[in-house]
Design a protein around this nucleic acid. Sequence first.
DNA 1: CAATAAACGGACCGGGCGGTCAACTTGTTA
DNA 2: TAACAAGTTGACCGCCCGGTCCGTTTATTG
Lengths: 199, 199
Amino acid sequence: MTSTRPLRADAVRNRQLLLAAAADEFAERGLDASVADIARRAGVGKGTVFRHFATKNDLIAAIVLDRIDALNAVGEELLDAADPGTALLEFLTVAAHQRQQRDLSFLHESGELPPKVTRARERMSDNVHRLVDRARRHGAVRADVTGADIILLMCAPNYVASYVPDAAPDLWRRYLAIIFDGLRPEGAHPLPHPAPPTP
Amino acid sequence: MTSTRPLRADAVRNRQLLLAAAADEFAERGLDASVADIARRAGVGKGTVFRHFATKNDLIAAIVLDRIDALNAVGEELLDAADPGTALLEFLTVAAHQRQQRDLSFLHESGELPPKVTRARERMSDNVHRLVDRARRHGAVRADVTGADIILLMCAPNYVASYVPDAAPDLWRRYLAIIFDGLRPEGAHPLPHPAPPTP
DNA sequence: CAATAAACGGACCGGGCGGTCAACTTGTTA
DNA sequence: TAACAAGTTGACCGCCCGGTCCGTTTATTG
């Protein structure tokens, strides 16, 4: 019930500049990038950052929320695609592509997150489970992998590729392909450990 | 040619305590663990840490060197194992197991490392290439993956598993199995991106 | 046991970080 | 255009970190 007046024009512009600058900075230098650097990159004073985002974590959360929302839109569209197998692959491709470059995979951090982020993450988890179930029923994915597995594996291609210095920007595609081949039923060997809980 | 007197008895003990404490601390809290905490855990003053390791990076390097050396011993033993396929899997299992818990995957950091570490890493790279070549010739691994791929993928299972809170300590085995299935020739689909350079 | 150098410990330093604040600027509104 | 609230800014604060230094302790050795 908090009646909020509309933001001033320069404020909305600065907010966008900040989100973009922060995303770039985090992409290049990881989540350790300093708030001061982000502010400088956005052409803005450090104080302005904290006016828009009370905390560095809130800033990160805002970026992550944007990305999860975008991913959810794609995921929900793919839920009734013709081929469930390629739909799942497509989803993983988008996920890896958007998270390109650096970490941000702190999706997982179950510690104190704004409820909005938690809700978006739950929706994503739901989408992934549906996508995986469909693909499994369609015989495109081995019977013994779960949605939880896929969520965990989602960030692996970028992580792997990020360790080659001056990597080609699309190298992650190679590792996504290898991992996805490991998810197929053909040539699958029984897994030595049960899947993690789904929460 | 620096004639070095033998270390004093307490010094060698403290050095061991420090290496152990640092390994534990890094395992639990990542490489950001503070030198002060490591010293406290070892039951030693902070100054003592720097007497043994001029720099925090030197301490990390010492630990990493130990691990790479151990891994090299295993790798060289496996080079003439009966089954090249299971030999490679075994190697990856040992690698993942020893790097259990947390990162330390800074194997890759090509930036300023002590020459000893660089040499050990090169030896490891060599071993992995041999292991992979043997496995490939034996038909246990798809034709289009290289040693460089495997080195990159080596840390992925731990990375993936590390993101589930309170994970079972062996969860990484599950993801190693999935990734290894992706490396097999059966059901392999062509890869969309060339392998990274081998250096 | 005495003498000596090696090893130890913790107060201390400079720097960089996230976050605050009060003076100042600017968009908005009547 | 006047006036006010919203927004901006950069100096500033406290904290913690890696690393230094020197007075003190201790293993070694003859």
